[in-house]
Nucleic acid binder design. Sequence first.
DNA 1: CGCAAGGTTGAATGATCTCAACGTTTGTGG
DNA 2: CCACAAACGTTGAGATCATTCAACCTTGCG
Lengths: 236, 236
Amino acid sequence: MKCADCPIHPRAFCARSSRGELDRLDALKTYRSFRAGETILRSGDVPSFVASVVEGAVTLTRRLEDGRTQVVGLLLPPDFIGHPGRGRSECDVIAASDILLCSFDPETFGSILREMPHVSAQMIHMAIRDLDAARRWMLLLGRKTAGEKVATFIDMVVRRKYANRGDVTDMEMLLPLSRGDIASYLGLTLETLSRQIASLKSAGILEFVDKRRFRVIDLEGLRRATGDDDDGGLPG
Amino acid sequence: MKCADCPIHPRAFCARSSRGELDRLDALKTYRSFRAGETILRSGDVPSFVASVVEGAVTLTRRLEDGRTQVVGLLLPPDFIGHPGRGRSECDVIAASDILLCSFDPETFGSILREMPHVSAQMIHMAIRDLDAARRWMLLLGRKTAGEKVATFIDMVVRRKYANRGDVTDMEMLLPLSRGDIASYLGLTLETLSRQIASLKSAGILEFVDKRRFRVIDLEGLRRATGDDDDGGLPG
DNA sequence: CGCAAGGTTGAATGATCTCAACGTTTGTGG
DNA sequence: CCACAAACGTTGAGATCATTCAACCTTGCG
């Protein structure tokens, strides 16, 4: 695929790149795919590539000694895996669904950053966005009730999929993660998550086609259920 | 104060700067101080400066609609407040103690970044470190027990104060935050925090001189109580 | 068909929170 | 110097939300 035709190009690390830069990126990139459940990078490993998520969902997971785990990051297109110049990974990086990555050798990407200020600026912008998102999630993990957590997660999925396009009600959406991964991302157990989803259904806020496909019936109600101040402004 | 004499210089955003760059920074910086409890920047405001923390502690706090709050970041010397190019703040930024800041006009700092690649590189490095720290904290908030949270916080204070200097046992340390702020940072109530500190005391792991000053009697025990895998590698 | 994986539901337990009283320290004014 | 208030912290008892453990349901696939 040519970068110019890439579905994520308008919002990825290469979003601000000139035509000439894109041609160079075209020559350097390699597509990689992983099946759902495959481990892309283990905590403590030195990454052999950095990459943009083109399709699918990737989780970043941390572990405690006794095996408890927490999903600390959810990467959807056009998020970026890895940071140039960082050594060993602090998380397990796992394909939560079948995924397609646009990858680069870390060294090569280092020179791209040095030589393409537009890429470098966009990477900084994305890192700051990630940091803000992580802090929003800290508020969720530390202070929100189970119900608020689940509503916030659904709201985030909706916002990321249909950023700012107003009328989302009744459109069919797809959960990017399994129940288990969602529970882990929210700092809940599977069972609690399941009950809270049931409660959003019976409140007439959501409707499920199957386990993964859902519609928002009452967007206003969903937003109210998040506990957030107003439009919490999740990242586009 | 000249930058060359600055206590935080070796680890701050200017750490890699040449002598000439330091002279330029000297001319552009302004020191600001705030008293404990003062609000430096309110959520939603556009910052009028960016700054390095030279002395004291700063908290970043987020709020829910009904007033629940969560400390989502703790800035100690030589951490940086604000990111160039980011608009409105997402958090309340509050002086948790009397503090001294080394500040710059955001526009000015923007040109510094453009013109001093060493500063720019160090800022990226610090942003990535902050993101890793935020994700470590997500694991804490989502999965750790109250006891593990408190042990982790104390361990973090010890590590930040005496990074990697092995023998910390019996040295007198100072908690950078009040009980209320610590509780908020850990996603606990004040009361639960108080009980867990009492429990670390009676376990013979900590000893308190007064409310704020403490000694680690059993560093090994403290580390075991964090629940972390091994040396969780908190940022230097 | 039968099994495995993923998800739901129920009942009991427990860690943390809530509410409330009490203790300690610090600074202020008489 | 003492009395007092205010801020900060501790301790106790009861309530609660989420977890745990267990059974059960659903779907897809060899």
